[in-house]
């Protein structure tokens, strides 16, 4: 597969853009006009060719720029990577998962050869070539989870399974929608989901936790989540709130199409073999409302979802300040006619 990696930024001058192909394959998350929480997990099996879920891990045109942005965030704030000492088995599990998947699905870009425990890894887009001993921390320049976490799009956390619960015991988190690894590290499943409105009363987290505790190796699961972000910014962390929080006051009905971005998270969970832990990946896709409206069906659906969103969810997702402006901008695409179910573009 030919991949042309773009030169672009996710901060300062914000030169990030989606190509027509990237818009076409955008993982639009709304099959219905109304959105509410549900246990929307499904098996992470290969999806349609060319889609964001064609492969186990999705590498797209933003790969190089996103890894560069991740490196900037980590250099400014090394605390975005954290791992408790008992996660070392899980760290190697994750390194294996990512290297196997990339080398298998993108052979022109990534190469992995294994000679017993001696592995050679080549990442052509990032110009990395290393030979190391699997399981021996000292043969890599940093911990295995950080090493591989810098070479893959999205945020990754390692969940340790014990006491019939899951604990966030490691993470590399640089493109989060306003949550903090340093705040959540060591928390249990119910603790880190504590702030989410409505869903607790619906019993969603209890069911989701039971489901995850039973998840088997080789049968990963995925779900989509979403929020909105002003400007194509990956690092919307509480730590750097002063750099992006005020952008939410700058949205008008005139500039909403360009400024407001739908932020879709492809969340995937994999059982890890040696550690019996779980790795949770949150891959972020950004699209401006203007680009979304390339397909009027999507703009129409987005208009209805945003207009009718439960006030608690709008508050939790941080949309309140610019929701009206975005709804007004989107309204020109909505003729009020019924839309059939489904996330398709046309």
């Amino acid at each position: 597969m030919a991949l042309a990696f773009k030169k672009e930024t996710f901060r300062d001058d914000y030169t990030y853009r989606n190509s027509p192909e990237a818009i076409r394959r955008f993982p639009f998350p709304f099959p219905e006009d109304r959105y509410m929480y549900s246990v929307n997990m499904e098996p992470h099996v290969p999806g349609a060719k060319g889609s964001a879920v064609e492969h186990i891990l999705d590498v797209d045109e933003h790969y190089v720029a996103e890894c560069a942005d991740k490196a900037i965030t980590l250099a400014q704030d090394p605390g975005r990577y954290a791992a408790l000492p008992h996660t070392m088995d899980a760290q190697w599990d994750v390194l294996e998962l990512i290297m196997d998947a990339l080398a298998n699905d993108y052979p022109e870009q990534f190469k992995l050869s294994k000679n017993g425990n001696v592995w050679s890894w080549e990442n052509k887009p990032l110009n990395i070539k290393d030979t190391f001993t699997f399981g021996d921390r000292d043969t890599l320049p940093m911990e295995p989870f950080e090493y591989i976490g810098r070479q893959i799009q999205g945020d990754w956390t390692i969940l340790d399974q014990r006491d019939n619960d899951l604990y966030v015991d490691a993470g590399i988190v640089t493109s989060q929608a306003d949550w903090s690894l340093m705040f959540d590290a060591g928390m249990s499943f119910m603790q880190w989901h504590g702030p989410v409105p409505q869903a607790h009363e619906m019993g969603i987290f209890e069911r989701a936790l039971k489901y995850l505790l039973n998840m088997q190796y080789g049968s990963p699961v995925r779900r989509f989540n979403w929020t909105m972000t002003i400007n194509p910014r990956l690092d919307t962390s509480p730590e750097n709130y002063e750099q992006w929080g005020q952008d939410r006051n700058t949205v008008t009905p005139q500039n909403a199409g360009e400024k407001v971005h739908l932020r879709v998270e492809l969340q995937t969970l994999y059982r890890l073999p040696r550690s019996n832990g779980i790795v949770f990946s949150i891959r972020c896709y950004l699209i401006s409302l203007e680009d979304l409206a390339t397909y009027p069906r999507w703009a129409k659906r987005m208009h209805r979802v945003l207009r009718d969103l439960h006030p608690d969810l709008a508050e939790y997702k941080g949309l309140v300040k610019y929701r009206d402006a975005a709804v007004q901008w989107l309204s020109k695409f909505d003729d009020g006619a019924p839309l059939e179910l489904g996330t398709q573009a046309e």
């Binding site: 008992h86 014990r162 190796y217 073999p273």
Partner: peptide, 13 residues
């Protein structure tokens, strides 16, 4: 056989 499942793992803490 099925893939391995663990209901009796060592508690790493």
């Amino acid at each position: 056989i099925t893939a391995p499942t663990n209901l009796f793992a060592i508690s790493r803490m």
